[in-house]
């Protein structure tokens, strides 16, 4: 199982990195992050605490957070199905679970590499000042958890359709729903249980309250990890559909 998973991860990452697409995405990603980071450094007079909060919580961050994962995951199963390699893959003795895990891990690793592209900016700031690396660590913890969730949702969306565009749109809509749940908080009074629920499931709230402030909460870890596993489990079940006929 582990051998199959690592083979799939390698294959997926190789196919990404031998094509220029990965580098173009990385270029765009670093450009947007570099520009916003430089902008915030100027805006906050070099105070790194608000710069970090804004870089990992501003509009550009949420734009990338929403759009990039579906673009990466849209081809995972849709492309295999469209090109006919999917049947080849499932008849090669690889289990559905290993297939899903491999595809998911490859997407997650790639998302991780994209976010690692922000690290040179932080190292630059460290060279000129004193960055709070605890806050950076918690932020990256949040990024890792949320990227896993988004990758799992993207993989699930891709397993549902042969059309890459539909897969991307589907995943984006779900991601958008998750982000916009934060806005629903405003509809409820401070003591309402609904407010607590939307706070609990809202990534913008998690980043604003915890991750970008240097705090890691067990409940957030449980939420992201469990929903990620649930989405992957659902993906496996979707792949099993072919046996139902």
């Amino acid at each position: 199982m582990i051998g199959s998973v690592s083979t799939i991860v390698r294959r997926e990452l190789l196919s990404l990195f031998v094509s220029p697409i990965a580098y173009i995405v990385l270029f765009c990603f670093m450009l947007v992050n570099g520009a916003t980071f430089r902008f915030y450094v100027g805006l906050y007079g070099g105070e790194m605490e608000p710069v970090l909060v804004s870089t990992f919580g501003g509009p550009a961050f949420w734009f990338l957070w929403l759009l990039i994962p579906p673009l990466i995951t849209m081809r995972t199963f849709s492309e295999e199905r469209r090109s006919g390699t999917f049947e080849l893959l499932v008849t090669s003795g690889v289990s559905d679970a290993a297939l899903v895990a491999g595809k998911f891990l490859a997407a997650w690793v790639f998302l991780g590499l994209l976010w690692a592209g922000v690290l040179p900016l932080l190292l630059l700031a460290e060279a000129y000042g004193q960055l709070d690396w605890g806050v950076v660590a918690s932020t990256y913890c949040g990024l890792a958890l949320s990227s896993a969730l988004l990758a799992a949702i993207g993989v699930l969306a891709s397993s549902l359709t042969q059309n890459q565009l539909i897969a991307a749109v589907l995943a984006t809509v779900v991601n958008l729903g998750i982000v916009l749940s934060n806005q629903l908080r405003a509809l409820f009074p401070p003591s309402a249980i609904e407010l607590r629920f939307f706070e609990y499931v809202s990534p913008p709230y998690h980043f604003a309250r915890d991750f970008s402030q240097g705090i890691v909460d067990l409940s957030t870890i449980v939420l992201y990890a469990s929903v990620t596993v649930l989405a992957l489990f659902a993906t496996v079940k979707v792949l099993e559909r072919r046996r139902w006929a």
Partner: peptide, 16 residues
């Protein structure tokens, strides 16, 4: 699992 986590907050402060 989430209902349990919702009621049992365990937080790590990583700030310097």
């Amino acid at each position: 699992g989430n209902a349990w986590a919702f009621r049992h907050s365990w937080r790590i402060d990583l700030t310097r």
